[in-house]
Amino acid sequence: MNKKSRVDWFDVVNYSLIVLCCMAMIYPIINVLAVSLSSYSAYIENPMRIWPKHINFASYQEIFSKPLLWSSYLNTIIVTAAGVVIGTFLYIITAYPLSKGHLKGRKVFMIFVVFTMLFNGGIIPNFYLMRAFGLVDTLAALVLPLLFSGFSLILMKTFMENIPEELEEAAKIDGASEPYLLFRIVVPLSKPIIATLCLFSAVAYWNNYFNAVLYIRSAENWPLMLFLKEMISNVTSNKLNNNGNLAELGHLQVTPETLQYATIMIVMVPILSIYPFVQKYFVKGIMLGSVKG
Score class of each variant (00 low, 15 high):
residue 2 N to W: 10
residue 2 N to V: 06
residue 2 N to Q: 08
residue 10 F to M: 13
residue 11 D to W: 15
residue 12 V to K: 12
residue 15 Y to I: 14
residue 16 S to E: 07
residue 22 C to L: 15
residue 24 A to C: 14
residue 27 Y to L: 12
residue 33 L to F: 12
residue 38 S to M: 07
residue 40 Y to L: 04
residue 45 E to V: 13
residue 49 R to L: 10
residue 50 I to M: 13
residue 51 W to G: 03
residue 58 A to M: 08
residue 63 I to E: 00
residue 70 W to A: 10
residue 71 S to F: 10
residue 74 L to F: 12
residue 75 N to G: 01
residue 76 T to A: 08
residue 77 I to R: 03
residue 78 I to V: 15
residue 81 A to E: 07
residue 82 A to R: 02
residue 85 V to T: 13
residue 86 I to A: 04
residue 90 L to K: 05
residue 91 Y to K: 06
residue 91 Y to W: 12
residue 94 T to G: 08
residue 97 P to L: 10
residue 102 H to E: 14
residue 106 R to G: 07
residue 113 V to Q: 07
residue 120 N to P: 01
residue 120 N to D: 15
residue 122 G to E: 08
residue 126 N to T: 13
residue 128 Y to A: 11
residue 129 L to Y: 07
residue 134 G to E: 05
residue 134 G to I: 08
residue 135 L to M: 13
residue 136 V to Y: 03
residue 138 T to D: 05
residue 142 L to S: 04
residue 143 V to G: 01
residue 149 S to C: 10
residue 151 F to H: 06
residue 152 S to H: 08
residue 156 M to N: 02
residue 160 M to Q: 04
residue 164 P to W: 01
residue 164 P to N: 11
residue 165 E to P: 03
residue 165 E to Y: 06
residue 167 L to N: 08
residue 170 A to P: 07
residue 171 A to F: 02
residue 176 A to H: 03
residue 177 S to Y: 06
residue 181 L to R: 08
residue 182 L to C: 06
residue 184 R to Q: 10
residue 187 V to Q: 01
residue 189 L to K: 10
residue 191 K to E: 09
residue 208 N to A: 07
residue 212 A to W: 00
residue 215 Y to E: 02
residue 217 R to H: 10
residue 218 S to K: 05
residue 229 K to M: 12
residue 235 V to H: 00
residue 236 T to N: 12
residue 236 T to G: 05
residue 237 S to R: 14
residue 238 N to Q: 14
residue 242 N to H: 07
residue 244 G to L: 06
residue 246 L to M: 14
residue 247 A to S: 14
residue 251 H to F: 10
residue 258 T to N: 14
residue 259 L to I: 11
residue 261 Y to I: 00
residue 262 A to Y: 00
residue 263 T to C: 12
residue 269 V to K: 09
residue 279 Q to V: 06
residue 285 G to H: 04
residue 292 K to T: 14
residue 292 K to A: 11
